[in-house]
Design a protein around this nucleic acid. Sequence first.
DNA 1: GCCGGGGGTGTACGGCGTCCACCTACGGTG
DNA 2: CACCGTAGGTGGACGCCGTACACCCCCGGC
Lengths: 232, 232
Amino acid sequence: MTGQAADAPRRSRTPLSRQRVLSAAVALADGGGVDALSMRRLAQEFGVVPMALYKHVANKDELLDGMIDAVVGEIDPPVADADWKTAVRLRVLSARRMLLRHPWASGVIEARMKARTAPTPAVMAYLDSMIGLFRAGGFSLDLVHHAMHIMGSRLLGFSQELFDDGADRAPDPDALPPEEMAARYPHITELAMAVAHDEGSVVGGGCDDQFEFEFALDLTLDGLERLHAAAN
Amino acid sequence: MTGQAADAPRRSRTPLSRQRVLSAAVALADGGGVDALSMRRLAQEFGVVPMALYKHVANKDELLDGMIDAVVGEIDPPVADADWKTAVRLRVLSARRMLLRHPWASGVIEARMKARTAPTPAVMAYLDSMIGLFRAGGFSLDLVHHAMHIMGSRLLGFSQELFDDGADRAPDPDALPPEEMAARYPHITELAMAVAHDEGSVVGGGCDDQFEFEFALDLTLDGLERLHAAAN
DNA sequence: GCCGGGGGTGTACGGCGTCCACCTACGGTG
DNA sequence: CACCGTAGGTGGACGCCGTACACCCCCGGC
């Protein structure tokens, strides 16, 4: 009783905000997988006509972006007062827990990564702070660069080439101005700048995907070899 | 001139086999990405009505499976007379070249992996022979097991959990009988058997995904740490 | 009291995968 | 040579999908 707007049986229960749409979409994808998520299905979750959703999200792509941002935001922030290794470790494990909670997420993130001009803000923030952890541990920019490539698949479930860093892509209509970029994602910017002009560097040169791939592969193989030798 | 069946302007040029359908589908996906591939689009590539394709492939999923098998078959066979490390290295690099040739492949393979009961035969064969390379190098079953988990994302572009090895999945209607399985994929079978009952093992126990993930993560982090230390 | 606009509605279009009934041409058999 | 079974292509329809466009209604501010 005395319910004020929660259960009026006649008109739209709650005004249906972007937040509500997003979380309903996440919930719908959590159970039933990503292809159980259609605009029509989502709309009828609210007892509303499909087009109503478009007053709160631009289109389905933008809906997916919003969902990504939401779940990436669930990843725990880095712990303070820890060496780089445990900090990175904990963060990655937290990311993994998120991905297990939302099994659709890794696929969607990866797909968005491959096609879209820029990752969503939350993903950017996550990557930026991850780079920050390595930097705080004293890693050189080159080494951080390699580290990010190496950990690619572990970081968020997608496999490779997080930043091939433009030039070939379409010129991205709504890119942040550089100063904005630098302010918001200082570590990403720093790294991107370094990669952009350093040609001969400590470990390797530029951002050659093939080189990065082999570098990561060899690191892994060396690790396996060490294990193998130790198991004698 | 004297063309015998190549240019008759009236009736079906060439009878449209499963092979032709598959390669046309691969070509269509190579240019234009995976969502440029629709049954209707593919059909009109042959100047034929969509349903005609269904005489040669069961449905779109089966078409995708066929495409996967085709491109995975492009991966070079292992080189003979080489130590395990270079053999694995060359094979993985060959796989990568294939994935760069067919950018849609990694995504499709990963998606199929996540949902399907068993990978396609060519993928199975690839994994089996990869395991064989490690085994030939003297790796213990446990270590090979870890190695396959670690290299997951590098192996074929998908991220994780190649073999969580059934039990929870749907019982798979058309599974191979065990002896067939063992004959065709000896290394996979051997490894699966070992994982199935060995509980306390050299490196770790059973096939605990969480354990495998952390194991791989730590191997990577250790490798990075070594690089970091060496860079002083 | 009026009015502008945010938010929900209705309809429609083009594309998708695929089921179904149908036809047609061809090779093998009597 | 007549016959027929069948492999392979056809045409249409169904039920989904995302979303463009026009509309309308109701509420808050002037």
